[in-house]
Computed example of a mutant assay.
Amino acid sequence: MSANVTSAAATAGPTYAQIFGPVFWGFCVALMLCGVSALQGYLYFTRYNDKIGVRLVSIYYYMLPHFGSFAPLNAVTKELVVECLISAVITFTSQMYFVYQLHVGKTVFGL
């Protein structure tokens, strides 16, 4: 009878703790790092006066003038649009470079 119990336990699969344990600890680390990043941004922008170009692609809008308010999250700001545009241009450029490398490799090796 004990052989039956051990074989059933071996085929039962992982427990919830084994599955969700790493997810929980990963979430805790990510939450801590996000808090550290937000604190660094807040401290930086309250102590230094940057040029407008730096403020356009930063979280200045959310961290200082509207700190603690959720109202700015209901609208898309110019800063967010600029950041998304820059990210899209960088992503497109890097993907096109990858395609170019595939094309060059194809013609060089005659594939």
Rank of each mutant, 00 (worst) to 15 (best):
L31Y: 01
F27N: 09
L33P: 03
C34A: 15
S58I: 04
M32I: 08
L39D: 07
G21K: 01
F45I: 03
Y42E: 02
P22T: 13
V57I: 15
A30R: 11
C34H: 09
I52Q: 10
Y62M: 03
Y61I: 04
F20K: 08
Y48F: 14
F20H: 12
C28Y: 03
P22Y: 09
Y42G: 01
G21R: 03
L33F: 11
F24M: 09
I59A: 08
C28P: 03
I52R: 12
Y44D: 02
F24A: 11
F27S: 14
R47Q: 15
V54C: 11
V29P: 04
T46I: 10
I59V: 14
Y44T: 10
G35S: 15
G53C: 06
I52H: 08
G26M: 10
V57T: 14
N49P: 01
F45E: 02
W25G: 00
R47Y: 01
Y62F: 13
S58K: 02
Y60V: 01
G35Y: 00
G35N: 12
N49Y: 08
T46R: 15
Y61P: 00
S37R: 06
F45Q: 00
R47E: 09
G41L: 06
C28M: 15
Q40F: 13
Y44N: 02
P22D: 13
F24K: 09
K51Q: 08
R55A: 01
G35W: 02
L56P: 00
G21F: 04
R47H: 14
I59Y: 04
G26N: 15
I19K: 09
S37L: 11
L31P: 01
Q40A: 15
Y44W: 10
V29Y: 07
P22S: 14
W25C: 02
Y62P: 02
L43T: 11
T46C: 12
A30H: 09
F24I: 09
L43H: 06
A38P: 02
C34R: 05
G21Q: 07
G26H: 06
I52T: 13
A38F: 03
G53T: 04
F24Y: 12
F27G: 09
V23G: 04
D50N: 11
W25N: 07
T46M: 10
I52M: 09
M63E: 07
G53V: 00
M32P: 00
V54S: 13
F24Q: 08
C28K: 10
G53N: 11
I59Q: 06
I52L: 12
C28H: 01
F24H: 03
G41Q: 08
M63P: 05
L56R: 10
L56S: 14
F45C: 02
G41I: 01
W25M: 08
G41W: 00
N49H: 14
I19G: 03
S37W: 01
G53W: 05
V54I: 14
N49T: 15
Y42L: 05
Y44I: 09
Y44C: 05
F45T: 00
A38M: 10
K51Y: 06
Y60T: 05
M32T: 05
